[in-house]
Computed example of a mutant assay.
Amino acid sequence: MLERLYELREEVIIFLDSQQKAALHDKFKSDSFQIILAYLVDIFESLNAVNLKLQGKNIHIISHHDTIRTFMAKLDLWKHRIQQGNAASFRNLDSGLAHGNLDPELKILIITHLSSLKAEFTKYFPDIDDMRESWKFIRNPFQCEFADVAEEIQEEFLELKFNSTAKDEFNDLDLETFWIKYHSVYPLISHQALRVLTMFGSTYLCETAFSTLTAIKTKYRNRLDVEDDLRCALSNIKPRIQDLVSKKQCQVSH
């Protein structure tokens, strides 16, 4: 929405003038407002990109963790660049600046906002750095040392680490498939890995389920026992229609 507003800023100015909204017209037309609007477009674009990366059916909590840490690191980078008077990280802001110079007051305003945004992320994810080390063996057990895992699974971890076949398969399989495959061989360490990988990384799947339920259980089907229908709608397993049909007798004439 902000991006559309920024793209149509000249038209909006004309519209406010035609509607005789003098106060809004003068405020919207001012250079300071235009620059702040350009910054808001850029920062919300970045937040929306992070939000999209946190959605999807086949994304686990470790990838979410990496996405959040990356964005928090970018906030520090953007803050450092703004302090140097460099707005290259913000496309619309950089192109909207007169002579490419940041006003000192605007610079303070942006730095304060980026600092507040970093503080909010730190508040929501206080243990973001601690999780990185505790999940190290899950991401790649072949690049860890026995000291990186709990004492009760260290021996089993070493058996896995020096299993050359497992190491080759690790490069070809995704994390979930790899740990499921070796769960029967290395149950202790695989159990810990799968406990993490099966966590809900975000509310995306819950929201998807509620949306699907709303589509299935309408006011015309309010007495429907929705459990089986919902399971089919949410499952990633594709039904084998031909096999199912072959087991049913077609309606024949008497």
Results as ranks from 00 to 15, higher is better:
residue 47 L to F: 13
residue 52 L to I: 07
residue 45 E to D: 12
residue 28 F to G: 09
residue 148 D to I: 10
residue 62 I to Y: 07
residue 60 H to Q: 14
residue 107 K to M: 12
residue 97 L to E: 12
residue 94 D to L: 01
residue 58 N to K: 07
residue 107 K to V: 01
residue 132 R to L: 11
residue 140 N to Y: 05
residue 236 N to L: 05
residue 19 Q to L: 11
residue 174 D to R: 03
residue 98 A to V: 09
residue 97 L to I: 09
residue 224 L to V: 06
residue 27 K to E: 09
residue 145 E to R: 02
residue 65 H to L: 14
residue 92 N to Y: 12
residue 212 T to I: 09
residue 93 L to V: 06
residue 143 Q to I: 04
residue 167 K to T: 00
residue 234 L to N: 09
residue 145 E to H: 07
residue 164 S to G: 00
residue 205 L to K: 15
residue 199 M to C: 13
residue 38 A to S: 13
residue 162 F to D: 10
residue 252 V to H: 05
residue 52 L to F: 00
residue 66 D to Y: 06
residue 12 V to F: 07
residue 134 S to A: 06
residue 74 K to T: 05
residue 15 F to V: 14
residue 245 V to C: 08
residue 165 T to D: 14
residue 62 I to H: 08
residue 145 E to F: 04
residue 64 H to E: 04
residue 47 L to C: 13
residue 24 L to M: 07
residue 215 A to E: 03
residue 203 T to W: 00
residue 199 M to G: 01
residue 32 S to M: 05
residue 132 R to P: 01
residue 47 L to M: 15
residue 221 R to N: 11
residue 37 L to Q: 01
residue 184 S to C: 02
residue 123 K to W: 02
residue 65 H to S: 14
residue 152 E to Y: 03
residue 202 S to E: 04
residue 8 L to E: 11
residue 15 F to A: 13
residue 41 V to S: 06
residue 60 H to V: 04
residue 236 N to E: 05
residue 53 K to R: 15
residue 88 A to F: 03
residue 247 K to Q: 13
residue 128 I to A: 11
residue 231 R to D: 11
residue 36 I to K: 15
